[in-house]
Design a binder for these strands. Sequence first.
DNA 1: CTTGACCCTGAACTATACTTCAGGGTCTAG
DNA 2: CTAGACCCTGAAGTATAGTTCAGGGTCAAG
Lengths: 143, 143
Amino acid sequence: MSLLSIGQVAKQTGVTVETVRFYEKQGLIEAPQRSDSGYRQYPWETTKRVRFIQHAKEVGFTLKEVAELLALRREPGTSCSDIKLRATEKIEAVDQKIKDLQLIREALSRMVLKCRGGRDLSACPILEELEMEELDMKEQPAS
Amino acid sequence: MSLLSIGQVAKQTGVTVETVRFYEKQGLIEAPQRSDSGYRQYPWETTKRVRFIQHAKEVGFTLKEVAELLALRREPGTSCSDIKLRATEKIEAVDQKIKDLQLIREALSRMVLKCRGGRDLSACPILEELEMEELDMKEQPAS
DNA sequence: CTTGACCCTGAACTATACTTCAGGGTCTAG
DNA sequence: CTAGACCCTGAAGTATAGTTCAGGGTCAAG
């Protein structure tokens, strides 16, 4: 119900007020209404959006890409099949990221397992695991 | 067997030769042996490492974090339980990223499902799905 | 009615991850 | 033996994602 000041949004989301203003300038959050004195007044949902931006950044999306994700909504003038297509493309990108992370995760897990006990002098062999090749075959320019 | 020039490593991995040199300067790939004329000569495994760096970057790791992942190996002077601990911390970070991505993925999927057919005039409602709150409760500073 | 916490703007500054530039060797096919 | 493709170094430049600064209003408490 009640509106939030920029400082409150910042505190709720763990970013700085400057970052909130920066996101506004970049069009990632829409310019909120202003008080008589010119203070920004945010609806509560803005905190959800700021958190979404942080999470998306955390998993490797640039702000430009986050903007594209946030723009995935049916606006007048766009067809349903159009946003469906764009959303499907995003899902594929997300799936690739999940795959990459799962392989990294498995390599790290193998590492922890190998490294049990520590009895052997030269145990825990160098982790060339991490240089996994399972990830490799994706896009090889044919040239 | 045969060694690769920096240009060959670049072509194999899809980065530029400048990027390879940059990674060397940052300590992400070790300085290779040199030919008589001073040309870098890389073993084949270097391409695996460069690809790993690209994948890790893709999922939101900074080069500093990638260096930490690559440093996760048992060096003389470190205990097994030490690298085990550090690897476990990395796994937790990876798991969090996977969770974030799965929630984004689900929101995108719901969007595609809702958007079927396109019969209804005002179908495909605005995707406030993406501003999901499931992701929220993580670290709330107690203050 | 003033003091401290908070808000405003625009511009300059910073870190990360490269990219481009300047100036110069190397190597191999014709 | 030279032209084009490739390699070298160090320094400067760029894009992204903020952060800091300068200079100035707002507001609630005392």
